[in-house]
């Protein structure tokens, strides 16, 4: 049986007068990595923000772990076990690595091993060496790792990961892909928005393609890689 952790139907959202999402339907199974793909402006980030409550959905339902969360404040959604890693990293540059992790800290649900800074440092060895460094003094790649680690400190069940490869040098992108795969190994469900097919193919089981605010295609990553017509229609050159 497929156990669904996130179930979005008919989600509409936008900014001010502009509408971006025109009824997005998607599901995420427990422990699955799904890639939310599509051109820029297709509504990938907007979808994640609307699920997280950072944008108030105008219509539709968002069920997380069986509970309706559309219209809830972001902090309540986070407390239910949905983590969010923003596109622009948004680490707290004035705070040390440890303090950044402290902001994200929330108790683990019963029966699950909680993330601790030590466990995360094993996960991201780079961070271990700079635990008392001001986050603003770290490189872009290190900051991206910190922002994922910070979200994991909240012991989420599922994570929305917005464009983790954006703006990073290819070498760092490979480390990011590795991190996502290890999150999957830990049993986390991950919905990752991504434009780069190489990255999506490296981490995801399944892809959903957004275009003009709706999901136009979904299926196996392998199918997508094999099918040039779909790629040409919805993704790249």
């Amino acid at each position: 049986m497929v156990d669904t952790v996130l179930d979005v139907t008919g989600l509409r959202a936008g900014y001010g007068p502009a509408e971006v999402l025109f009824g997005v339907d998607l599901t995420l199974a427990r422990g699955e990595v799904a890639a939310l793909m599509g051109r820029n402006g297709a509504g990938k980030s907007t979808t994640l923000k609307a699920i997280m409550g950072l944008l108030t959905p105008r219509a539709g339902t968002v069920r997380f772990a069986g509970q309706e969360i559309a219209g809830m404040a972001p902090y309540r959604i986070a407390r239910l076990g949905l983590g969010y890693v923003p596109e622009e990293r948004r680490i707290f540059t004035d705070l040390t690595v440890m303090e950044n992790l402290a902001v994200g800290r929330r108790a683990a649900p019963p029966g699950r091993e909680a993330w601790t800074p030590e466990r995360l440092f094993a996960f991201f060895p780079n961070l271990a060496e700079m635990r008392h460094r001001r986050a603003g003094a770290m490189s872009g790649g290190e900051q991206q790792m910190l922002t994922i680690a910070r979200t994991l400190m909240g012991n989420p069940e599922a994570v929305l990961l917005d464009e983790p490869s954006e703006g990073l040098a290819p070498v760092i992108v490979e480390q990011m892909a590795d991190a996502v795969l290890r999150m999957k190994d830990e049993g986390l469900a991950v919905l990752v928005s991504e434009q780069n097919l190489d990255f999506a193919a490296a981490v995801a089981d399944r892809a959903l393609i957004l275009e003009k605010g709706t999901v136009r295609w979904q299926g196996d990553i392998a199918t997508l890689e094999a099918d040039e017509d779909i790629r040409r229609a919805y993704l790249t050159v």
Binding site: A169, P170, N196, D198
Partner: peptide, 14 residues
């Protein structure tokens, strides 16, 4: 070595 890495080299080729 320092910049492109794997996927970048592929993109550059593509």
């Amino acid at each position: 070595r320092v910049y492109l890495g794997h996927s970048g080299t592929r993109a550059a080729g593509r």
